[in-house]
Amino acid sequence: MFPKMLTSAIGAGCAAWLLAAVLHFAFVQKYILLGEEYESGAMVHFGGAAPPAEAAATDAHSHDDATAEEGHTHDAVEEEGHSHDGAEAGHSHGGGEVSTFTRDLWTTVFFGLVYVAYALILVAGFGLARVYGKVITAREGLLWGIAGFAAFQLAPAMGLAPELPGTLAADLGERQVWWWGTAASTAVALGLLAYGRSLVTAALAVVLLAAPHVIGAPELEGFSGVAPPEVSAAFAARVLGVGLAVWALMGWVAGHLWAADKPA
């Protein structure tokens, strides 16, 4: 069964790779570059937000009176953003030190790795379903793909929203542990909901779905983003939208290839 799984996974992973790269460069990359402009200080949120006359008449370094009272001023934020740069010495963000071509080439390569990896995991699920007598076709594959998106992107994003470059966040190791735990727990829960036959499995699924969010993702106290919230929001929404489209295609292609190949 291994060669059959590998064939389906690589076919689906490559289809997903192509779509992911196209949609990323069409919809997402410009927000990463924009986030880096704010992270580096090349662009300043409040300085560019208001017309010059209005900006001069008001305190350009605070959102408004309410945020200034809370101490959430732009100056403070900018200092934090710069200290982040210092802490990440040698961390190029791909800007300045490498050409756009090289940067985008690596981005394309790594999309391939990520989606082939996701496809291997997805098709391992197909294999497990077959062991228990479940038939997967393109239609089931599409649903599995959407479920995979929910497990690996949507559920983790509820605690750890896709971060624009320059966003400060809690300890990396703790966030990675929460990410993997949430993905695994959501994937198992969706499998139990879809294929379980008793109230006990449904109840267990609900517990597994809720647990990561009840525990809560590691987070910092306070907020530190240097980019306008509109940029962060658009970035996160587009990342999730692209993820859904790519996972749906990957699931459909994987299911199609899986069903087309006779059982090994």
């Binding site: 990323h24 997402v28 990359q29 990463i32 982040h84 990440e88 961390h91 190029s92 963000h93 791909g94 940067r103 690596w106 981005t107 390569v109 790594f110 999309f111 990520v114 992107q153 983790p156 994003a157 750890l160 929203a161 896709p162 971060e163 624009l164 470059p165 966040a169 990396l172 966030r175 990675q176 990410w179 990342v239 999730l240 692209v242 993820g243």
Partner: peptide, 15 residues
């Protein structure tokens, strides 16, 4: 560094 943009665009914790 090579995977930076993909990590941000995939929702992985990056930094």
């Amino acid at each position: 560094d090579a995977a930076h943009d993909v990590r941000h665009a995939s929702g992985f914790p990056c930094h």
